[in-house]
Structure formats: structure tokens, C-alpha cells
Amino acid sequence: MNIARIVVLIIALGAGGVAAYLARGTEENTKPAAEPVAQLPTVEILVAKSDVGLGQLLKPEDLQWQTWPASAAGANLINRAGRADGIKEIAGSIARSPFFAGEPIREQKLVKATGSGFMAAILPTGSRALSTEISPESGAGGFILPNDRVDVILSKREKNPDGKGSDVIQSEIILSNIRVLAIDQAPKEKEGSNSLVGRTATLELKPEQAETLARARQSGTLSLALRSITDANAPEGRPEEQVQRRSESVNVVRYGVANPTTAQK
């Protein structure tokens, strides 16, 4: 009797498993097929194959074509469909700004400099490059690098008006938020170094600023004050509050002791 019950139970379980398998297969067959993923249209644009530094002369091996979403390929990018010889056309240009590997090449950041030097090539239209001597003490301890922004400070020693004690030292900012083009002959940071201790700084100036700096070099000592990177878009030139120099505070050194005072008109 018990054997018969066991056989019946086994048959029932087997039938149930078969029924479940058949039901699952029917359900899978009734599922709708997955829709194919839409392929975005792409184009090939010209990019930097490796990092390109400021002032670097581009060679064909520095460039390559790369697949790019057509919707993101703006008119300022070099499209292979429209310029199949793009690599040959761009080779020989000088980078006015750095490029990272894989970054699209934009002609606005390049310049053709046939017969011209590097500095003339990267100098913006209407600007002038003027050099001035610096030292570690007057150049922020060597931490000023190309493309940094600085204020130019003029310090002059004058006779004490009352005729007593040591001379009066007067300092003023003559140029503000000026871009550094190069330190000595290095237009970019040296590899493995976070500072350049040079003796000459080349500054990017407007013509009237170049005249101001040239006069200042003959009348006193120049120092460069490093500005924050967030000041890149601040107004350039000479701050309005610095125009009236005589109303500024100066540092009077008497017998080796510094005392703040105000210059007299």
C-alpha cells in the first residue's frame, strides 16, 4: 500500500515539473523581441595623439583622426569628411595653447609661423613682448611660471624730505594682472620641476604698458608679485587706485627700522 502511494506521488511530481517547464517555455516564446539599440551618427575629427605643449611645433605623428559624435562636432572642429588632408595642413603649425591627448584640434589655438620666431607666433595681435630683469627675491622666489599673472611693482629710493635719517623707499604697482610669456628662454615649465629660477621675465604688454615698463626700469627696482590663478579674467593695466601714487602709504626706513608713513604732496 505504501509503495503504491509513493509511485503515485512520484508520477504526480513528474507531471507537475513537466507542466511547469512547458508553461515557462510558452511564456518565454510570447515575450516581445528586444528592440535594437539605435546607433548615433558619427564623424571623424582631428585630435591630438599625445599631449602638445605651449609653443610646440606640430608634426604629423602628433595628430590622428578619431571617431566623434556628429551632434558634438561643431564647426570649429576639423572634420575628415570636409578636410581629408587635415593632418598635412595642420602639421607645421605652432600651438598657442596646450592640447591634451585626445583633445580636438582647433585652429584658433594654432598659428602658422613660417619665417617667424616662436614668441612672435604666440603673441596676440596688438600686444608686445618686453623683458625685464628679475631675481629670486624680486620674482616670488622662482615660483612664477610662464602663463602666470603678476603685478609689476616699482620701488624707488628718494631723499628724506626733512633731510634727516635714511632715504625714503616708495613702492607702487605700475602694471596689474600681466601675463608672463617666458622665464629666461623657457616658454613652458621644465619637466620634473615646479619652479623656474630665471634672471629675465618676458611679459605680454600693450604698447602703452611697454612704455610704462621701459621708463620704470630706468627709475628704480622692479619686482613681480604673483597673482592667484582666479585673477586671470581681472582687468589688466594700472589699477585706478594706484594712479595717485603720492596718497599711498610708503615704508620709511630710518636707522634700519621700518616705519609706515604717508608721502607728502
Rank of each mutant, 00 (worst) to 15 (best):
V257S: 08
S176E: 04
T132L: 07
E189S: 10
F99Y: 13
V150H: 04
V152S: 02
N76V: 14
A84T: 12
V43T: 15
A210H: 03
N79D: 14
D62K: 02
I45E: 02
A101T: 04
K164Q: 12
Q242P: 01
S93M: 10
E158A: 13
T67H: 05
R245F: 09
Q244P: 05
T114W: 01
R254A: 09
T202C: 03
L77D: 09
S176M: 01
Q66G: 03
G82E: 15
V243P: 04
L123P: 04
G17A: 15
I144N: 05
Q242S: 10
A234C: 04
A210F: 02
F99T: 12
G53C: 04
L77C: 09
E28C: 00
L57M: 13
D162A: 12
I169R: 07
G82C: 05
R24I: 14
I6A: 15
E248C: 05
S131Q: 02
P41D: 13
A15P: 00
I94L: 15
L196A: 03
S249L: 11
V18A: 14
A73I: 11
N29Q: 14
S195T: 06
T212P: 00
K265L: 12
N233F: 04
N76H: 13
D231A: 13
I11L: 14
L154F: 03
R215I: 11
L123E: 15
D85Q: 13
N79I: 11
T67Y: 04
R245P: 03
P260I: 06
I134T: 00
P60E: 05
L205Q: 02
R5D: 14
R96F: 06
W65M: 08
E107G: 07
E103V: 09
R157N: 11
N29V: 03
R24H: 15
I105W: 02
R128K: 12
P41K: 12
R5V: 14
T262E: 05
R245S: 11
E248M: 10
V253N: 11
I173E: 00
E204K: 08
D162I: 10
V180L: 08
E236V: 08
L181Q: 14
A120P: 01
L205C: 01
S116L: 09
P260H: 06
A19M: 12
